[in-house]
Design a protein around this nucleic acid. Structure first.
Lengths: 132, 132, 132, 132
DNA sequence: GTGGTCTAGACCACG
DNA sequence: GTGGTCTAGACCACA
C-alpha cells in the first residue's frame, strides 16, 4: 500500500488489484468529493505516469474509463479535463452510492442477517470510529 | 444467472465473476445460514463438479478456501465435512459481517458520504424492499 | 485494404483507421448479420491475432469493446462467446441503424439538401447498384 | 457544443472530434449553402483563430483542406477567397452528397439492412422531424 | 506538448 | 489453454 503524489492528489497503490483500476477508482473519488473541480485540467498521462511510477499506457487506460464514465473530457493535443457539468458528477455519485448500498445489503442478507442486524452493525461501526 | 443443483444445494452461477468465488461464496452462505449442518458431509469434488457442470479444479479451489476458513475439514479417504463446531461457524459469520460492513462504510466515505447519508440510503433501500 | 480470414470470418483491414476499431466494427457486423450465432464461441484472442497478423493486445482491445456493447460474454479460461440473447443483438442493431440514419440526414441537411433530394439520391444509388 | 462567431459565420464546436475537422466541415457547409458567396474573402487564419479561440495551426489545417477541395484560393499577400466559380462549388456539393449517400448505404447493408429497411427508417426519421 | 494506437514480450488468474 | 494486465518503447494525429 504505497503512497504516491501527483500534484494535489494522493494515490495509494498496491499490487492486489489492477493498477489502472486503482487509479480509476481514486480519480473517481477525488472527482466525487470535489478534490478536483469541474473544468479542472488533470495531470497529463505522462506526468501522472511519472508521478505514480507507472507505465503511461496504464494511466491512459484509467483515463479512458473516466471518459466513458462521462466524468472527464479529452481534448487531443490539450489534455484531459473534468467535465464542466456538476450535475453529471452528482448523478454518477448517487448511482454509485445506490449500487454499493444494494450490494452491501444483498451480501448481508445472503449470510442470514436481517435489517436489525445490519443497523446494529452500522451503529457499532460508528461507535468504534468515534473512539478512534 | 443460471441455476444449478447439487443435492439439496442450489447454486446461481453467472460469468461476470470467477466461478470458484461464486461457489465458495454460496457454500459459505449455505453453511452460515444452516442449510448445511455441522458435521454434514458435502459432495465430493467430482460429484460437485459434475452437478455444476464445472471443471473439477474450480470446485477444488473453492473447497480449499473453505478449509482455510475453518468451515470444513477434509478427512483423507472419507471426504469433506462441515466443521462440527457451531461456534466456529458463528464466529466466522460475525467476523465476515464486520468486514463487509467496514468495507461498505469505507467505500461510501471515499465518495464523500457521511453517516447521515449512509443511514438515509439504507432506509431508502429498506422502503423499496417493503414495496416489492 | 487487405483481406484476412479467421475461420469463417473475413476481415478487411487497412491502415487509415485504428486496427482495433476495424476489427470491432466488422465483428459487430458479423454478429448483427447472424454470420456468427448467439452462443457461438469466437476465435481466441491469440488465434484471431495470428489469423489477422496483428498483436494479441489489439484483438483484446476489440473484444473488450464487444463486451461493453453487450454483444459478447467473456469467460476467463474458456474464451469469448456471443451473447445468448438474440434480443440484445437486435436491439443493438436497431439503435445503431437509427443513429446512422440520423447522422446521414443531419449531414445532408447541413449541405442544403432537402427530403426530396435525399430520396432522389437514394433512388439513384439503388438504380446504380441494380446495374452492377 | 459551444457556439462561436467569426464575422457572419457561426461555428459550433465540441470536443468529441478534431477541431480542424469541425471547422473544415462547417466552412464547406457555409460555402455549399451560399452563406459565403463566390469571390468573398474569408477571415485570415489569425482573425479566425482569435474569433474561435483556437490555435492558428488548427485553422490553417482546415484552410489547406478547403484549398485542396478547390473551394478556396489563397492569393499571396491578399488572403484567402472563395472560388469565383459557382459551378465548382455545385460540383463539389453533388460529389459530396453522392459520397455521403454511398457511405450511408454501405454501412446499413453491412449491418444487414436492405433497401426496404433503409426507406422505412428514412420515412420514420422524416415523420419524427415533422412532429418536432 | 497532448492523448491514442500498436507492437513485443512478460506474467498472472482461471479452468 | 483462455483472457487480462503491465511494461517498454515506437509512431501518429492534433493543437
Amino acid at each position: 500500500m504505497e503512497e504516491r503524489r501527483a500534484g494535489a492528489l494522493v494515490f495509494h497503490l498496491d499490487l492486489s488489484q489492477p493498477l489502472y483500476e486503482q487509479i480509476l477508482q481514486q480519480m473517481r473519488q477525488a472527482i466525487a468529493k470535489g478534490e478536483i473541480r469541474p473544468g479542472d485540467k488533470i495531470p497529463s498521462v505522462r506526468e501522472m505516469a511519472q508521478a505514480l511510477r507507472v507505465n503511461p499506457n496504464t494511466v491512459s487506460h484509467a483515463y479512458q474509463e473516466l471518459d466513458r464514465d462521462g466524468l472527464t473530457e479529452t481534448r487531443r493535443g490539450q489534455g484531459t479535463f473534468i467535465t464542466t457539468s456538476p450535475e453529471r458528477i452528482e448523478r454518477f455519485r448517487q448511482t454509485l452510492a445506490r449500487r454499493v448500498t444494494q450490494e452491501f445489503i444483498r451480501q448481508m442478507q445472503a449470510f442470514g442477517f436481517g435489517w436489525d442486524d445490519i443497523r446494529a452493525l452500522l451503529r457499532e461501526a460508528q461507535d468504534d470510529s468515534r473512539e478512534t
